[in-house]
Design a protein around this nucleic acid. Structure first.
Lengths: 215, 215
DNA sequence: CCTCGGAAGCAAATATTTGTGCTTACGATG
DNA sequence: CATCGTAAGCACAAATATTTGCTTCCGAGG
């Protein structure tokens, strides 16, 4: 035992540390009994010295933001289905699927928590939002390029994104059958489509309405 | 002046303390430069000894929850306009008006922040939500009693409440003209009604940030 | 009028979080 | 193969937050 705990002092690479810390944040955000999240707890869970966390990220907010953007980018394949409706549906279905896991809910919660409130952070907040909405913008752009007429970002925000967030925030499970379809149809039915034809109100609870431009 | 600072040791009644602390929470939540909120700061702002806050509320979460329910109950007049549409519109307009003040935004933010995440708090969270939705339930009940056929709570949640929350969370201002009407019409007519009017008029592709929009 | 329970204030102890100086391992580069 | 920059680990210090023991005031009953 001359080198008493030399082997105990394992040094992991920066990338390993980063991943471990991110994972610890997600774990703590999903797992625990309402415990509040803080840097020492995160570091301990990650098996990393807390000073490393302080030095690298400086604050819990920065860490949360970093984790969120990393995860969101990693988990957004953003495949092109060929139609606006298909893309929106894929997005919605991925969101619902993610919402059904504790990690997914934790991620959304972290997005909300890491949203800066301060007045001076106006620009930062806008940028944050932009990044969060990146895939949606992409979908809109592609639709426009195809000649489809996508709903405005505002409409998508109100009718597609907002329902997901509100459910995560209040801990309400999404309805069982065809929830993504319901939302997307609602959005497309009154958003971009001209009011001609089937402006019917029949769509209260039913689903299965076909999108206008699906070949 | 043998009793040197006797007058400095002002004792306020429990109710006064409660009100002062609640107000301090709202102030700190709306005011500051992104400072995080904590009990010592609240107590100082309220001019109350921090031990009083610890003893009475025990935790920041409990304090937030108490403040939120108190304020929400106080600020929900819940008048009967005679029609479902009128009631929903009144609710939405009150919400939008409240969203335009820093205090209102702070209150919504506090609702979100005080929403317990923990698994074991599912019942607590549901109760919290119920209380929050009380006025909406009331509106639905009245409509049913009148013979009107109100949307489901789920529909109202998705199409009316969620858009408000998402905007507060992301710091996006509600669209300028007739936003409450837009949402309520969409909800009631599921999009068929506002075709002639404001649906596709002004707001093309713009999201209103606080302040000038991103170019 | 007296006492007694509840709650607020004060001060001091304790616990927790955050920050700092220094040491040490790893890998890239010459 | 030596050196050098980066970043992690350790120990300890500073700052903050939380808890506790006691005192004081107020109002409700006896």
């Amino acid at each position: 035992m001359t080198q008493k705990e030399a082997s105990a002092r394992v040094r992991r690479s920066p990338e390993q540390v980063r991943a471990a810390v991110h994972q610890a944040v997600v774990d703590l955000l999903s797992d625990p009994e309402g415990e509040e999240i803080n840097i020492p707890a995160i570091a301990q869970r990650a098996g990393v010295n807390h000073t490393s966390v302080y030095r690298r990220w400086g604050s819990l907010d920065a860490l949360l933001a970093d984790m969120v953007t990393t995860r969101l980018e990693r988990d957004s394949p953003l495949n092109d289905t060929g139609t606006l409706r298909g893309d929106l549906l894929a997005w919605a279905e991925a969101s619902v699927a993610s919402m059904r896991t504790p990690e997914g809910r934790a991620l959304v919660r972290a997005v909300v928590l890491s949203m800066p409130n301060s007045a001076h952070a106006k620009a930062e907040r806008a940028q944050h939002f932009q990044r969060r909405m990146h895939s949606i913008e992409q979908i809109r752009r592609r639709a426009t390029a195809r000649g489809e007429n996508p709903p405005t970002l505002e409409q998508i925000l109100d009718q597609l994104i907002a329902p997901f967030y509100i459910r995560v925030i209040f801990g309400i499970d999404p309805p069982a059958g065809g929830y993504p379809e319901l939302l997307v149809d609602r959005l497309l039915g009154n958003g971009s489509a001209p009011c001609s034809g089937s402006a019917s109100t029949a769509n209260q609870d039913r689903i299965g309405w076909r999108g206008p431009a699906v070949p």
